[in-house]
Design a protein around this nucleic acid. Structure first.
Length: 570
RNA sequence: GUACCCGUAGCUCAGUUGGAUAGAGCGUUGGACUCCGACUCCAGAGGACGGAGGUUCGAAUCCUCUCGGGUACACCA
């Protein structure tokens, strides 16, 4: 693809002794205002090397640059060297490239031959999927798509919370107050109310806790009845999660959860012993990390049972063996920062050089009304409820604006779900978010529906053009006709897409794409409102339709990268 | 107590490998639908970037201190 920055750094290199083209490339920046040019070189740093004033350097460079078909003019303004590209040439290069690339526009093969394992979503079996789980799911899913788009081989793992003492509690509660019929009828909702009831009753009657421990012990020892119930609860949960995943358009390559590693921890403990890393402390077995200024990593409880660090270590080793990953990424809340730092360090101490390929990708905490989310206290918003409300609201809008739309239920799902994911991926991962119904159900402005609507608008234009006999696939176009500032701004925005993708991959930050899409949609809508497209003038019509097509392709590709559908009509 | 993270318009957030007058959206005020889909577009009001020092030709961005909020710190995950 044509890269104006690259061209300019090549032109400048011979004029600036001592600097390589790539160093100049890094110095080039986009001026704050388009009227100042398309690219600029601040000459302040050069002033030390060249021992001249920045103003003088800019003046001399401006005068010394040979004529080039890519550049219209060059201005020197108070120490900045400003480049104005040849718009016609630039527009032609960018649009031709997008048209040729199509759905591959923005993709690359930098990840060719490399494998990325991404661990995300991991809901707790027998508990409802709530908005807190959404972040891990939507961020992980987007990272998966971003990596894939960049040529990596990806393995998406849903590390299900399918083991632990909560199953003892659940089985106990089921035995006391549950019934097969009630569970079959109300599924997870019934399991949750059993779970909540257990905690309520256990406060009054401590013997229930003993009973729960006993059931979990039986489960661990392979007791048939316990295992059967466990499997049943798991199946019920998975089936219900699957509905949410379908709605969110999320899937996984593996559902190996915690239970899967039950028989894989013993060798890990043995290895820790062999390496002389395991130490007894207060009855528990730990790996001491005081030389790293960290609290110790707990490996075995005083009663000899394992902890989540043990499981994570075993899982990482298993994954390295199974997938031979180049990177293994964990998408979890920031509150787990220390935990990951600790066990990554344990992996390093065990002598695995791939410890450096483990990445924790943290995200901020979700709260509702200033309170943390908690299933037990009921301070949660179920994802299912949220999605349903968003879909319902979308349907209302469709009924008001476009009541005869085909498939309107399907499209309402795509947009309602899209609105929820989009808002989840809009701000930087690390920021804490306060859940608000009003905000998430507002579809105006910087929202998923806005971008989807814009995409549908491009589709509608192209369809109308086709109906009048224009083949949008094979447009001949005269780029010199696209000479307004709205058209130029739109092309510049389109051209940014590939670097936004690589930036998002590098920073593990889907929000870069989300915000880019808003900017792109804004640029398109400005163009749309200022210029008619389906005109009598065939040349102009074809040129503008090419621009519309390029916008459609880029909006589509971008929406898919953050996990949204891009319906053609809405 | 110690460590890490966050603190930019009324609200939600961009911008942080230092660069030209700090940008969006929501809300608000005023405009644009006989016109390619108004979930749209245009315009206005609204901010010494928590505070104080420092480094620099230049700081929202880097350093130090400080205030406010969040999170973590041994047998939950």
């Amino acid at each position: 693809m044509y890269n104006a920055k690259m061209e300019i750094s090549k032109i400048l290199a011979p004029l600036i002794p001592g600097l390589e083209p790539n160093q100049i490339y890094d110095m080039l920046e986009v001026p704050p205002n388009p009227e100042m040019g398309d690219l600029a070189l601040p000459c302040f740093k050069l002033s030390r090397i060249l021992r001249k004033s920045p103003v003088q350097i800019a003046e001399e460079l401006a005068a010394g640059i040979p004529a080039d078909e890519n550049i219209d003019r060059i201005e020197s303004v108070s120490g900045y060297l400003n480049f104005f590209l040849n718009q016609n040439h630039y527009i032609r290069q960018v649009l031709c490239h997008i048209m040729e690339s199509g759905q591959a526009y923005g993709s690359s093969d930098i990840g060719k031959g490399k494998t990325i394992v991404i661990d995300y979503s991991y809901p707790n079996i027998a508990k409802p999927f709530h908005v807190g789980h959404l972040r891990s799911t939507s961020i992980g899913n987007s990272l998966y798509r971003l990596y894939k788009f960049s040529g990596y081989n990806c393995v998406g793992i849903n590390h299900l919370g399918d083991w632990g003492t909560q199953f003892g509690k659940l089985i106990t509660a089921y035995k006391h107050w549950g019934s097969k019929e009630a569970v079959q009828k109300n599924l997870i909702k019934e399991l949750v109310s059993l779970y909540v009831k257990f905690h309520k009753e256990a406060e009054k009657d401590d013997s229930l806790n003993d009973e729960a421990r006993e059931w979990f012990l039986r489960l661990e020892q392979g007791d048939e009845e316990a295992l059967e119930l466990w499997q049943w609860f798991k199946d019920i949960s998975l089936e219900e999660y699957q509905q949410v995943y379908d709605l969110l358009d999320v899937s996984f390559d593996s559902y190996h959860g915690e239970a899967f590693y039950n028989d894989k921890m013993e060798p890990v403990i043995q290895k820790l012993k062999d390496k002389n890393l395991l130490k007894e402390s207060e009855g528990a077995m730990i790996v001491d990390l005081s030389d790293e200024d960290m609290p110790p990593c707990l490996i075995l409880k005083a009663d000899g049972s394992t902890l989540y660090a043990t499981r994570d270590i075993a899982a990482a080793i298993y994954r390295k063996k199974t997938y031979d990953f180049d990177k293994c990424i964990y998408v979890t809340g920031v509150s787990q920062n220390l935990h990951f730092k600790q066990w990554f360090k344990v992996i390093e101490k065990m002598g695995y050089e791939w410890h450096k390929d483990l990445y924790h990708v943290p995200f901020g905490t979700v709260s509702i009304g200033g309170e943390r989310l908690a299933t037990r206290t009921g301070n949660v918003v179920l994802l299912e409820d949220l999605l349903n409300k968003a879909i319902e609201k979308t349907l209302e809008i469709i009924d008001a604006k476009n009541p005869h739309l085909e498939n309107k239920h399907e499209i309402a799902k795509q947009m309602g779900g899209g609105a929820v994911i989009f808002s989840d991926l809009f701000s930087n991962r690390i920021k804490d978010v306060s859940f608000s119904w009003d905000e998430i159900l507002n579809f105006d402005g910087e929202t998923g529906p806005y971008v989807q609507y814009t995409h549908a608008r491009t589709c509608s234009l192209l369809k109308k053009a086709e109906e009048s006999g224009v083949n949008a696939e094979e447009l001949e176009f005269d780029s010199s006709l696209l000479n307004s500032k709205e058209e130029y701004q739109l092309v510049k925005s389109l051209a940014e897409f590939p670097e936004k993708v690589s930036q998002a991959v590098e920073e593990l930050e889907p929000s870069i794409i989300t915000r880019y899409l808003v900017n792109l949609a804004q640029a398109f809508n400005r163009f749309y409102h200022n210029h008619s497209i389906l005109l009598e003038d065939k040349e102009l019509k074809h040129a503008r339709l090419t621009l519309v097509k390029a916008a459609k392709v880029t909006l589509y590709n971008g929406l898919r990268l953050i996990g949204l559908h891009a319906p053609e009509r809405v």
